[in-house]
């Protein structure tokens, strides 16, 4: 959350945002599944100016062995920003922000991934932010969910995430970088779309109760829209066409 810059107007006189969007519009999102060769599952996501790559390895034996759980798989989630992903070069390696994001993202997936199927193993989820434009933790978790599906890891549901915030006094959906820097609040949220359960939730800024609830509902709606896109991307990836000759069955 940046400071307030009275010089920047985030909404024009018609209520349009600096990128032309309305208050409740999502940025354009593109999803690609199974893009990496070495990973067990992977997904690439573009969300506005965000470029995010997620990969999953596992289930695999736990290293170091003393971290193994005899009843279920252990999840490991690592959110990492590439040095060139932001305007001022970010020094490589985990910083406190990345560590916190990794922790809450892992928690979001903990009950969704059916870890009880794989005792004494671990599942590693890696997300690299190649280009950042606010909302990276939401983009990362959304991509991670697709990568987990691509890896064939059983889950109770996909996980979809989206953020809402407040800019120039108005609650708005899906803030971009400038809006996040100069806006008054940021609220990222992730859900299990089938049940509406909220799995990740944070907020910073100053909001009245009404604004808080408005923001919450807006982020929820955004996440639901994102989950529809995830579903479509997964279904569209495999065309069940017929090759050349007649039908054949195994």
């Amino acid at each position: 959350m940046g400071g307030h810059n009275p010089g920047i107007k985030l909404l024009d006189k018609d209520g349009k945002r600096i990128d032309g969007r309305g208050l409740y519009d999502l940025r354009p999102i593109k999803m690609e599944i199974g893009v990496l060769k070495k990973a067990d599952g992977s997904a690439y996501l573009e969300w506005g100016g965000n470029k995010v790559m997620a990969a999953v390895y596992g289930p695999k034996p736990v290293m170091p062995r003393h971290l193994a759980n005899p009843y279920k798989a252990v999840l490991m989630y690592r959110y990492n920003m590439a040095p060139f992903s932001v305007d001022d070069r970010k020094r490589p390696g985990p910083d406190r922000r990345s560590i916190e994001i990794s922790k809450i993202s892992r928690d979001a997936l903990e009950r969704i991934v059916m870890t009880e199927y794989f005792p004494n193993t671990m599942i590693e989820i890696f997300v690299e932010i190649l280009q950042a434009d606010a909302g990276t933790r939401c983009a990362a978790l959304t991509a991670a969910s697709l990568a987990l599906a691509d890896a064939g890891i059983p889950m109770r549901d996909l996980v979809a995430a989206c953020a809402a915030g407040k800019i120039d006094g108005k609650v708005a959906l899906d803030l971009k970088k400038e809006e996040d820097n100069y806006g008054e609040s940021d609220m990222p949220l992730a859900i299990s779309p089938r049940t509406g359960d909220i799995l990740l939730f944070q907020m910073d800024g100053l909001l009245t109760k009404e604004e808080y609830l408005e923001s919450l509902h807006l982020a929820l709606e955004g996440a639901k829209k994102v989950s529809e896109m995830q579903k479509k991307a997964l279904k569209d990836k495999y065309k069940i066409e017929t090759l050349g000759g007649e039908d054949d069955k195994v």
Partner: peptide
């Protein structure tokens, strides 16, 4: 790569 499609046996034969 094509396991989910129909007609795999014939395509492989060809």
């Amino acid at each position: 790569e094509n396991a989910h499609k129909y007609g795999v046996t014939d395509a492989v034969k060809k």
